[in-house]
């Protein structure tokens, strides 16, 4: 029990004294996972609206793929991205392996199916006749899409939260394609793994606490946004 208690005390000290190493790692995590989530949202919302509003052939197959993608093993994604970015791999010339960009790519691949599948559910939960009504009120296709996204905003925010959660809590692929390089690709999760391996539980607990705090802050903010019965 002492271990945990001392760990927490040390963690609080590290956090509140503005320890450079801890903050650098936290900022890397935020940057990498934030960017990956943004990419996942852009792609996921796009694909979801295509699947729901255009109902293309093969929709069910695509949906099954995205649903399965929610359970994509991060290690497999990491492996795939690592092979693609490997020096002799198809995208090796870009020199991205062991860079923050590589982690962003891997996390975006992991978060995109989550955002897509949940956004499809969100958009499908809107009464399909509402789209007809909106078009009948004189909306262009774009206007109709925007209004329907606005209508599904609560569930769409849940999709964003789930995507962010998947990205920031990911560790296997992050280490594999990022290399856990201090000052560059070390994130809160990969740093925690490292510190535990070194037996430095205080620092590991500090990282975990910050990770939890970030998740709580981001998801909390989105939840407040979601639950504010904003009507304009």
């Amino acid at each position: 029990m002492d271990l945990i208690w001392d760990g927490i005390k040390e963690a609080v000290r590290l956090i509140f004294t503005g320890d450079a190493y801890v903050y650098e790692v936290a900022l890397t995590s935020l940057y990498v996972s934030g960017t990956a989530t943004l990419i996942a949202v852009v792609i996921g919302f796009g694909i979801a609206s295509l699947l729901v509003f255009r109902a293309p052939p093969g929709r069910t197959l695509a949906l099954s793929a995205f649903n399965a993608g929610m359970a994509l093993p991060p290690v497999a994604v990491g492996l795939l991205v690592a092979i693609m970015l490997w020096r002799t791999g198809p995208l090796g010339a870009l020199g991205l392996l062991f860079s923050p960009t590589a982690i962003i790519i891997a996390q975006a691949v992991i978060a995109t199916p989550v955002v897509t599948a949940l956004s499809v559910v969100a958009l499908q939960s809107v009464n399909p006749r509402l789209r007809t009504q909106i078009l009948a009120l004189g909306a262009s296709r774009w206007q109709a899409g925007l209004l329907l996204f606005r209508e599904a905003r609560l569930s769409l925010l849940a999709a964003v939260m789930a995507g962010f959660g998947a990205a920031i809590s990911e560790v296997g692929a992050t280490i594999m394609v990022g290399g856990n390089i201090r000052g560059s690709t070390r994130t809160l999760t990969s740093a925690t793994v490292l510190e535990v391996q070194h037996g430095d539980f205080e620092t590991a607990i500090a990282f975990s606490l910050i990770l939890l705090a970030i998740i709580f802050a981001v998801v909390g903010t989105l939840t407040v946004l979601q639950q504010r019965r904003s009507v304009s």
Binding site: N127, R129, L130, Q133, A136, L137, G138, L147, R150, E151
Partner: peptide
């Protein structure tokens, strides 16, 4: 044109915002 269906099919917004939807568009 304008169409009214059996279901009111209102947006999740105020009454006034609903009434002005077509004008905004």
């Amino acid at each position: 044109m304008a169409v009214v269906f059996q279901e009111p099919l209102l947006l999740e917004a105020t009454v006034e915002a609903n009434v002005t939807t077509g004008l905004v568009l």
